[in-house]
Design a protein around this nucleic acid. Sequence first.
RNA 1: GGCCCCGUGGUGUAGUGGUUAGCACGCCAGGUUUUCAACCUGGUAGGGCGAGUUCGAGUCUCGUCGGGGCUACCA
Length: 481
Amino acid sequence: MDKPLRVRFAPSPTGALHIGGARTALYNWLAARGRGGSLVLRIEDTDRERSSDENVTQNLDALRWLELDWDEGPLSQYERAPRHRECLDQLLEQDKAYPDTATADDVRAYKEANDGAGYRGTASAAAGAAIRLRVPEEGETVVDDLIRGEIRFENRLQDDPVIARSDGSVLYNFAVAVDDADMEINEVIRGEDHLSNTPKQLLVLAALGAQPPRYAHLPLLHGPDGKKLSKRHGAASVQELREQGYLPAAVRNYLALLGWGTQDDTTLMDTDELVERFAIESVGRASAVFDEPKLRWINGRFMRELAIDEYERRLADHLARVSPDAAAAFAAADSGQRSAACAIVREKAQTVVEVWPLIAFLFAEPEIDEAAWKKVMKPAVAAPMRLARTTLGGLREWDPDSLERELRALLEREELSARKVLQPIRVAISGSTISPGIFESLAVLGRERSLDRIDAALERLSRPDASADSDPSQLPDRAQD
RNA sequence: GGCCCCGUGGUGUAGUGGUUAGCACGCCAGGUUUUCAACCUGGUAGGGCGAGUUCGAGUCUCGUCGGGGCUACCA
């Protein structure tokens, strides 16, 4: 029936890719992929003051990280200036647009004097005139929105919009209309903040004699305080999401759910399912609040389902970005060690950032968390720990099952509580009260290193000043930043 | 101020005139447990308000209140 779908994502490179922008990109991408359409990437860089190549690069990187690809572009809107100029001249010739020198104050004064009616200027030959589009006096411009239905704007109240600056460069609302028409975009999916721009673009399209696309205005994203999402709310850009250890697939899943949902309440969806089920018509109308705890939960679910090699790759990538030392320590270990470590934390970490602190002790000597030591290494644990040391020292097989079997047998024999014995071992080998499962941890650490660390702990425990351990830097609380 | 959009628990949503208003996150409690998580079970909490239409309204209409967007020779 219809022509093949052509949508576009048109970020303005005046900053990093915002989460709201990322969702817009995702919805366009889902629409294109789900309906056999194509996605055009267009960079809206006509504002030369605020646009920068760095931002273009960063936006593109963000899209790539999110694994959202495009079929055409990136196209620079600025580079299409000659074409825009051509269309502008056409409208000027047809008297559908005119040069005008009115300032913002003039427009305001006009409206006040005319009962709020839209500003109408008169063609001026003066130098320094901007170009305005003539808006019809009668009738209304109707936006037929796929999400909101028909939205009507009275032409009478609409100002003749400036479509080109006095230096001849065109403005956003003009460039967008021309580009959408030229690129044969037939569905514009964008944020609701553009809703009131739409009649202006529709008017330009009409003046040009072009057929307008259909529109879908997405509800805006807000922070927990109901205000527009910003850095104050934690992560505001895709870049920050990446730095905080979120997985692209999880971000896509979460973002898809911000403003859209399935009838059967499915929450966790892989990308194929998202593509298959997404429908722009079923996007909601109310603005949504970006809720990071839920993203964390979704991310945790994706983390647990990640294949080990992928898990390893994500971790290595993250370490490379934040800590050369950690990255080196991780890379230096043999591959079996790396994947074994990933395997034992996989069920625990919710974000990539949380992984390394839990397994670093498997790759380097741990720093002893003094608070943990004081809490667990009471004099009374020395005896049971020695028994455990003996048991471990005599083990023939050093694997999780054997370790658990023998250690539990010991506990039963000596009528010791698991907590009394296992927790000190944990602190001894990891330096912390928090770690992956103790049997798995011992297994991955290896016999030699495990026993060495337990011996070292036993030794320290036996020193008279062990619990005091006159360390001058005794800040009692966590210093883990 | 003007124009426009929106309004189901703290958050995201389902529902399309008749339901005990469902699901998920969060939170609380319990369970499991070698720590932290995870996991399992249960619980908490909701249609802004007021009219109208109707036998019956979260669902339709109007008003009102509240939130948001736009209101640049920005995008």
